[in-house]
Design a protein around this nucleic acid. Sequence first.
DNA 1: GTGGTCTAGACCACC
DNA 2: GTGGTCTAGACCACA
Lengths: 124, 124, 124, 124
Amino acid sequence: MGSSFSNTQPIYLQLVQRICRQIVRREVQPGEKLPSVRDWAVQLGVNPNTVQRVNMELERMGIVESRRGQGMFVTEDGARLAEMRKQLKEELITTFTSEMEELGFGEEEIITGVQLFLRTKTNE
Amino acid sequence: MGSSFSNTQPIYLQLVQRICRQIVRREVQPGEKLPSVRDWAVQLGVNPNTVQRVNMELERMGIVESRRGQGMFVTEDGARLAEMRKQLKEELITTFTSEMEELGFGEEEIITGVQLFLRTKTNE
Amino acid sequence: MGSSFSNTQPIYLQLVQRICRQIVRREVQPGEKLPSVRDWAVQLGVNPNTVQRVNMELERMGIVESRRGQGMFVTEDGARLAEMRKQLKEELITTFTSEMEELGFGEEEIITGVQLFLRTKTNE
Amino acid sequence: MGSSFSNTQPIYLQLVQRICRQIVRREVQPGEKLPSVRDWAVQLGVNPNTVQRVNMELERMGIVESRRGQGMFVTEDGARLAEMRKQLKEELITTFTSEMEELGFGEEEIITGVQLFLRTKTNE
DNA sequence: GTGGTCTAGACCACC
DNA sequence: GTGGTCTAGACCACA
């Protein structure tokens, strides 16, 4: 199996990102239980250590919490999730625009570039 | 000295990115000579081998070329540079929008988000 | 030890060529693990950095891939390998014929030359 | 000017090869005088040292000879040139076939490959 | 002087 | 354990 992970970034970070996004867009519901470390490791085809690390990271970000002897749960603090989502959004926008400007693109070019891209994508 | 390099990405890649952008936005002119490996290494505070690797990478990208016994030169092929710039731009836009969409933002939200950010930044 | 490397070409390129050919003619099977960098360096009598460079090059050619913390593996994409083999073949033929023509040999002479060579070699 | 030299091989060797072939296919006639070092260097856009080295190499190969105070001349020994040509031809064939065999191609494939290539090239 | 290769040895993150 | 990065310092051919 080609395990579908990029080589340029550590697997655990790729997983953190993927799951974080699923949670933040409510694809995984607040309060929902995550799979056990062992099961999840099998499902993802990675080492249990890696899953452990993912859980740690998610907990540190405050979007999942471990309950003793029961497992890992998505936080039920909806405000926390919304805030997280907004923060991620602003991070993306900030780095995107600054990198575009480093390539020498002005504001107008940036906006029309994005607009064009989204429109043509829609028409495909 | 705080050597001004991030820890999350290899130094040589940070340099490649930085220089690539300088070249692509014509901050360094086509045909211009880059510093010698040894001089540049001193300026940047890194090992000559690291600079060498950067040069290799830039040459592989087709934006600089080595002339035997003379040094490294920015390519004079302006079209190549323009093409590179366009390609980098599209890469940025593609990953940006796809990541925004993974966070659950729609087209409209993406565009207005960028617009708002650029405007408020201007007013600061 | 006469380390069995030619002086006219860098060691790492000689290794790349050698291994590439072994892979492409299926002497090393798709999916097979290559020796670890350190082990291989000892076997080949070169520095680990040199082996590392060879691996980089082979990965860039798309015929091996690194799996984090596990090692380097020959790609399992058989089509990729076949394509590579064909490409190398055509390169060889192209440069060979063009160099023969630069020596002033015509098509007929080229073909009969090769035929003669192969036949006499067989009879030895 | 893109000086039309490959980076993978030293310039002087590229020149030796080029001129050697011109001589051997009688594009430059036996007994003909080569340009002076200085003139030739200007024509080729290279350093006079490089031309000097080329001349040395060609003399060592026995296909040009220096006459004191007069310059470099292509040898008038036609047999020498014919022999040289034959030798170069056999070298090309030998390395070509051995490299094809290293890629796992058999005799038949090699010959038909060359034939196909020459025919399709003719038809273009 | 230039770039390019190679060695030796260290350190790191990842799995 | 694995690959990947970096440093230090050497040597070479080329122009």
